[in-house]
């Protein structure tokens, strides 16, 4: 799920930036530091959309660095248990398949792939229905439901299922 939220961060700036473009530098650094990172609490910071406020700078003893508390608006992406996501398959093996939705890695076990789909090994390993009409292989797009998440400092990993109504392949690269 995407959220538009306000976050706060204490930014340290070197004295050489104290001039006409101070705010510029502060924003640049904030984007560099924050966008693309992941926090366990909020998920991935996709983009900063605006600066809410920049607090009063505090000069640090000794170094001359100044710390500014910055409040900023941003879009974050955080998958939840029970959420339905669309993802691209990245790897298929006999244990199941891996898929990714943006920065989020997901695994769907063969326990949670419909029973009528069998694993086929070979050059392009895949799961296929007995009549061959549905196939999951690398680059397939699938709709899956998240049943568990693990959020680490730098990544989010999810366990998913496609064993439910309206889940599974939404396009098949083999037929394009």
């Amino acid at each position: 799920m995407f959220f538009h939220i306000v976050l706060e961060r204490n930014m340290q700036l070197h004295p050489r930036y104290f001039g006409r473009n101070l705010r510029d530098h502060l924003v640049t650094k904030l984007m560099k530091d924050v966008e693309g990172t992941c926090s366990g609490r909020h998920g991935f910071v996709v983009a900063i959309t605006g600066i809410e406020s920049v607090g009063k700078g505090l000069i640090r003893d000794g170094t001359g660095f100044v710390t500014f508390p910055v409040k900023y608006q941003c879009i974050v992406f955080r998958p939840f248990k029970g959420e339905i996501l669309e993802a691209v398959v990245t790897m298929v093996n006999k244990m199941g398949f891996f898929a990714e939705a943006g920065p989020v890695q997901m695994f769907v076990s063969n326990h949670l792939i419909p029973d009528d789909m069998e694993f086929q090994s070979g050059d392009v390993p895949n799961y296929t229905t007995s009549d061959g009409s549905v196939k999951i292989q690398k680059d397939s797009e699938v709709r899956l439901k998240i049943i568990g998440t693990r959020v680490d400092a730098t990544e989010i990993f999810c366990i998913g299922t496609i064993k439910d109504d309206f889940l599974g392949v939404i396009n098949d690269p083999a037929t394009i």
Partner: peptide, 30 residues
């Protein structure tokens, strides 16, 4: 405007090593 112009440039830049600044969460944490 700054944000938009910066983003284009920054995509190409390599991400610097993180400083010790802490991400203090101001609002709702999930």
């Amino acid at each position: 405007a700054v944000l938009d112009s910066k983003r284009v440039r920054m995509c190409k830049e390599e991400e610097n090593a993180k400083t010790d600044e802490s991400q203090s969460s101001a609002s709702l944490g999930f």
